[in-house]
Every structure is written in structure tokens, then in C-alpha cells.
């Protein structure tokens, strides 16, 4: 069975400058959006965690804020981790891309930009993927009408 990582233990494994940027809320592990790239890099390379497989990136619109959810897996230790970050506001949202860490993030980040309107910095090819260029709005947002 895949072990579900204990968030408390994961935080303890992190170097101090990173663990200060993380917190646990409602049983989920959160990180401040500016540190998402550094944290993912650490989780991928730390010999204790080795989250080498990015299962999926999802974005959820909670109206007051957006949540980006990273489902990570370690194929080495057979364990899984859910990492979240909150972005407040409705416009000009951006977060650093993790495509340089996991190639599998490339298409998913484009999809989130297309459907949710969250921009990923340093992405090699940040443009719409499922809808056409020139489409107005981001349809998966809760306030999108037609």
C-alpha cells in the first residue's frame, strides 16, 4: 500500500528556512506561494522524501482564494504527499513553474493557466492549451458566465 506521508514529519525533515514557510491547516500541508519551487526542489532531492513523480497539479477556485494542489508520489519509497498553496485575489495571479523539476508539469500548468487563469512564471511555453488564443476568460472559475 502507498504510505500517506505524515505532514508533521515532512516539515521536520525540511531545512529551517523552508520549514518556516510551511504550515498545516485542516490536516493539509501548505506552503507560501513564493516558496513553492524551492520546496518542491527540496522534496524531490531530499534523500528522506524523494518525491520523484508528480501525479497531478490541480487548481480549485474557492472565490476568496485559489488553491493549487500538488499530488506527489515517491516511486522509490512508495509514499504520497499532497502539497497545497493559496493565492489570494482574482487577477494577475502567478506562481513559479515547477516544469524544470518535473517535465510532467508542463502540460498541466498550461491547462491551469487556460482554464483557471493562474500564470506560471519561467514556464517554457506558457500559452492556452485546450481553448484557442483570444478566448475571453477562464471557464473553470466560479464567476465565469458563458
Amino acid at each position: 500500500m502507498t504510505k500517506i506521508a505524515d505532514n508533521q514529519i515532512v516539515i521536520k525533515l525540511l531545512p529551517k528556512d523552508l520549514s518556516e514557510q510551511t504550515y498545516i491547516s485542516d490536516k493539509h500541508l501548505y506552503v507560501k506561494p513564493e516558496f513553492i519551487y524551492e520546496l518542491c526542489k527540496e522534496l524531490q532531492n531530499n534523500p528522506e522524501t524523494q518525491y520523484n513523480y508528480l501525479k497531478s497539479i490541480s487548481a480549485v477556485d474557492y472565490i476568496e482564494y485559489f488553491e493549487i494542489v500538488y499530488h506527489l508520489d515517491s516511486l522509490i519509497n512508495n509514499s504520497s504527499l499532497v502539497l497545497k498553496t493559496k493565492l489570494f485575489g482574482r487577477s494577475k495571479l502567478s506562481v513559479k513553474s515547477v516544469t524544470s523539476l518535473w517535465k510532467g508539469a508542463e502540460l498541466q500548468e498550461r491547462e491551469i493557466w487556460d482554464l483557471m487563469g493562474i500564470y506560471f512564471e519561467d514556464h517554457p511555453n506558457m500559452k492556452r492549451i485546450l481553448l484557442w488564443e483570444g478566448f475571453e476568460g477562464h471557464p473553470l472559475r466560479k464567476d465565469f458566465i458563458k
Binding site: 480549485v60 499530488h71 510532467g104 502540460l107
Partner: peptide, 26 residues
């Protein structure tokens, strides 16, 4: 994979599909 978020209603608040064909194209 399916990632479902519920707000207590009768339909999911968010339903994200992790589609293997899409990911295999990366």
C-alpha cells in the same frame, strides 16, 4: 485519477481528472 472536492452539496465543487493519455504526451 479523479480529484474530487466537495462543499457538502449534491454535486462536486471541483472535479479534476488526471487523464493518462494527456500526461503521456508530455
Amino acid at each position: 485519477g479523479f480529484y474530487l472536492v466537495s462543499d457538502g452539496g449534491i454535486s462536486p465543487y471541483r472535479c479534476k481528472i488526471r487523464a493518462p493519455s494527456f500526461m503521456n504526451l508530455s
